[in-house]
């Protein structure tokens, strides 16, 4: 444990000066952020600000070009996602990305792939998913591609939880979803968080994101421009003007 931060609990996720580029195009300049164990952190910002790229680099989908990612005290920079999942860092990707040709149940089983050697834990993971979202149980044998957008998001969340992560990164929960679906999903996230799951939520709907999270970061053109408690940011004039549609 680092002496200088001995007073505060060590962060579960610690990102320092992270940079991401696609070929010549730099998408993320330099981002630093932290998520504590059991904390609910939101990241807001407009389209193309680099939020998704940041999340992809954290979850090991992309290799960052600079900076450092620490998870659970270990340096995991550049590790591929399939290893990070085994260490407890899972992500629900943008656009849900369910395995469309496979059944709902198979999707959940795949979510528990890390337990391949212990079939019992896979069955448990499937049961937990169906308990969390009973709607999915009704559709268990249906191809995932035939689900509605909301149901697919539920499946993506349940699938992400199947590996029993300590931190769940969620990229654009609301994308293309109706408010009434969101009204159902946000409380589920809060409940999961109360049960001890740390959550890092990327969201364009700033109002809702700030309403459910403890702390938040605001990203703009590849950098974190503001950070603070969700309550403070919701009152911040600049944030209200840019993202909450209020003056």
């Amino acid at each position: 444990m680092n002496m200088t931060t001995a007073s505060s609990p060590p962060a579960l996720l610690k990102v320092t000066d992270l940079g991401v580029a696609y070929g010549q195009v730099r998408a993320v300049q330099s981002v630093s952020l932290e998520v504590g164990a059991g904390e609910f952190v939101a990241m807001i910002g407009s389209n193309g600000a680099g939020k998704s790229s940041t999340m992809k680099a954290i979850a090991g989908v992309l290799a960052p070009v600079s900076g450092r990612v620490e998870f659970n005290g270990a340096d995991v920079t550049g590790q591929p996602s399939h290893r990070l999942v085994r260490q407890g860092l899972a992500m629900v990707p943008e656009g849900r990305q369910v395995f469309a040709e496979q059944t709902v149940e198979d999707n959940l089983r795949l979510g528990a792939f890390v337990f391949s050697r212990t079939p019992k834990m896979i069955d448990e993971a499937v049961d937990r998913g169906f308990t969390l979202f009973p709607r999915l149980a009704e559709r268990r044998a249906q191809a995932a591609g035939s689900l509605s957008g909301g149901e697919q998001q539920m499946l993506a969340m349940a699938r992400g939880l199947a590996s029993r992560p300590r931190l769940l990164v969620i990229d654009e929960l609301s994308l293309g979803l109706a408010p009434r679906v969101l009204d159902m999903l946000f409380p589920v996230l809060q409940q999961l968080n109360r049960d001890g799951l740390a959550i890092l939520l990327v969201e364009q709907l700033a109002t809702q994101a700030l309403a459910v999270s403890h702390r938040a970061y605001v990203m703009e053109t590849g950098r974190v421009t503001l950070q603070g408690s969700a309550r403070d940011l919701a009152q911040d004039p600049a944030v209200r003007q840019a993202y909450l549609g209020r003056h």
Partner: peptide, 17 residues
């Protein structure tokens, strides 16, 4: 429009939590 686009709750966001 406010409801659909600018956010469902018109109240300051922090209060809803």
């Amino acid at each position: 429009v406010i409801e659909a686009y600018f956010g469902a709750s018109a109240s300051p966001a922090g209060d809803a939590a």
